[in-house]
C-alpha cells in the first residue's frame, strides 16, 4: 500500500482534518483562502477520490440542499491512517525545518 502523500494531497487532507468533515466546494474555497491561488474543482475531487482509494479518507453521502440546486454532497472524513500519515509527513518536514539555519542576507 502506498502511504506517501503528494503536495496537493497533503494540503487537502490537512484541510479535511481541520474541518473534521468537509466536501469539494468547501475545500476549493478554503484552498483559495489559504494558498492564495486558484484551483479547479475537479482537481480537488480527483485528490479526494485518490485519498479515499488509499484508505486515508472515508466518505458518506449528505442530504440534498437548495444552494446546490437540490443535489447531494459527498462528505469526507479522515481515517486513522489518514491522520497518522499526515502527522508523519508534517513531522518529518518540521524536523527538517527545525534544523535549517536562520536565513540571513
Amino acid at each position: 500500500m502506498n502511504h506517501t502523500l503528494g503536495a496537493l494531497e497533503e494540503v487537502i487532507i490537512l484541510l479535511v482534518l481541520r474541518e473534521r468533515e468537509s466536501y469539494g466546494a468547501e475545500l476549493v474555497k478554503l484552498y483559495v483562502e489559504h494558498m492564495k491561488k486558484e484551483i479547479t474543482l475537479p482537481a480537488v475531487v480527483m485528490v479526494l477520490k485518490r485519498l479515499e482509494k488509499k484508505g486515508m479518507l472515508k466518505s458518506r453521502t449528505g442530504e440534498p440542499s437548495a444552494e446546490r440546486g437540490g443535489r447531494r454532497k459527498v462528505l469526507y472524513q479522515a481515517t486513522e491512517l489518514g491522520y497518522q500519515t499526515a502527522e508523519e509527513a508534517i513531522k518529518a518536514k518540521t524536523q527538517i525545518w527545525d534544523m535549517v539555519p536562520k536565513f540571513s542576507k
Binding site: G24, E26, K29, K49, R68, G69, K73
Partner: peptide
Amino acid sequence: FCREDYREEVRGDLQEVFDW
C-alpha cells in the same frame, strides 16, 4: 466528461463554487 457516479457530487460542488 464526468463519470456518472461522480456527477451529482461534482455538479453540486461546482454550483456552490460558482455562486461563491
